[in-house]
Nucleic acid binder design. Structure first.
Lengths: 231, 231
DNA sequence: TAGATTGTTAATCGATTAACAATC
DNA sequence: TAGATTGTTAATCGATTAACAATC
């Protein structure tokens, strides 16, 4: 059914599909190292132990056109994915929070290869301000909005304690940030236009803990055979 | 085809709902501090800026019974959620990888309040072995399976580089671990009985990056044209 | 050609949202 | 009581899975 309103033409991209693309991307890179020159969705599914139909749909969603009976030129597909995700276009970011997690994030050199560069770090703790972490000097948190404004930074990472997260998010929004990647275990609220990605460990821990206890036979209700599904 | 055996009629717990429970849980704790003694789902929804119907469904899913016109006694609901998620029952864990992320995880004291206690740390790097991190002495990775076996550890955390993740997961499974929380940016495969929770930052980064570029007006589908031409 | 693989459409499944009944 | 809130059922929506057509 094509309601070909040329305007509403944009396909809706499922979040879950987007989140699977890095899995394919990495596997493709490994294949490239091995000298492989072409790849089919079936190859990907086999190699990763995933459902072939799902892989097909995910790849197709990116809009790449392949050849029946052939698949995709490997390097072309890699480049396609990089372009699709914007991983080949640099986006600057700021980081709030220079604790252990913040420092770890600052040390992830691979972020840059994935289109994200942390330009500056901010903290409220006087003892940390002025210190250098992975080559970046920690600045006072209050400087953040102006820095964001001056440099047109798009992305803000929050790695502060939970109780500071909301106010830091507000600072970022004030400065004109467009997207927030929140690592603090806190529910923050932002204007609708702001893209918010939460990386709250306790969300995962809840799921993991519940499933683990269920599997062990601990009784929320009746324990039952759990059919494991995705990975 | 689901057999509606009235007795073994276990409700299916949606993953997404599980992952939202910590949000409610935290908000309830804040309310408790403020001296509130009862709460309705509408209160939660309002306070958190979430959809009331969804909150209702999520809370109902946990099996708690409330009173119409009243809601739930606040403390009772908090305790109920803790019990439902298993956060009031200690589960031991091991950590593989004593790098910056591993160290940060080790330092999260709140994990213990959420039912998880990291009992031991392992690394393959001779320079790290023997060091103490947050009071835990780093042990050789090879000791991991035996430790897990001896102590009946349920949960394994992987915070190694990507290329070590699969072999570490295998070690954990060998030792008899029941669930793996994988922080390495790697797709790992485990037997079906093993619960696997991935915390892959690049999954999120893909989603975030794509959405950000789309919002900025960057053209994923326009570039498609230039690529499509070359074959 | 034959058949593997892409491309596309349909069916199924599950989660969200909406509607409404029960009840304190 | 009245009406706010829980409890439950139905409708909608979206994603996954399956089926099949096109094509190189």
């Amino acid at each position: 059914m094509q309601s070909d309103d040329a305007k509403t033409r944009r396909r809706e991209i499922p979040e879950a599909s987007l989140r699977r693309l890095p899995i394919y991307y990495r596997f493709l890179q490994k294949m490239a190292v091995d000298g492989v020159v072409r790849v089919s969705c079936a190859d990907l599914a086999r190699g990763l132990g995933l459902d072939p139909t799902q892989v097909r749909k995910d790849i197709e969603m990116t809009g790449i056109v392949g050849k029946p009976r052939f698949g995709y030129p490997l390097v072309h597909l890699i480049g396609w994915l990089e372009n699709f995700l914007g991983w080949n276009r640099a986006k600057s970011a700021v980081l709030a929070g220079a604790g252990s997690l913040g420092s770890a994030l600052l040390g992830y050199e691979k972020f840059r290869k994935h289109g994200m560069e942390i330009m500056a770090v901010f903290d409220i703790d006087g003892a940390k301000i002025g210190q250098r972490i992975h080559g970046k000097e920690v600045q006072p948190l209050g400087f953040l909005p102006d820095f964001v404004r001056r440099t047109h930074t798009l992305l803000g990472l929050i790695a502060t304690p939970a109780d500071a997260a909301q106010s830091v998010a507000d600072l970022m929004v004030t400065g004109g940030i467009r997207a927030i990647w929140n690592f603090a275990p806190a529910h923050i609220r932002v204007p609708e236009r702001i893209i918010l990605q939460n990386e709250d460990l306790y969300h995962s821990l809840a799921s993991l803990s519940f499933k683990l206890e269920r599997q062990l036979g601990a009784p929320p209700f009746e324990s039952e055979i759990s059919y494991a599904k995705d990975h």
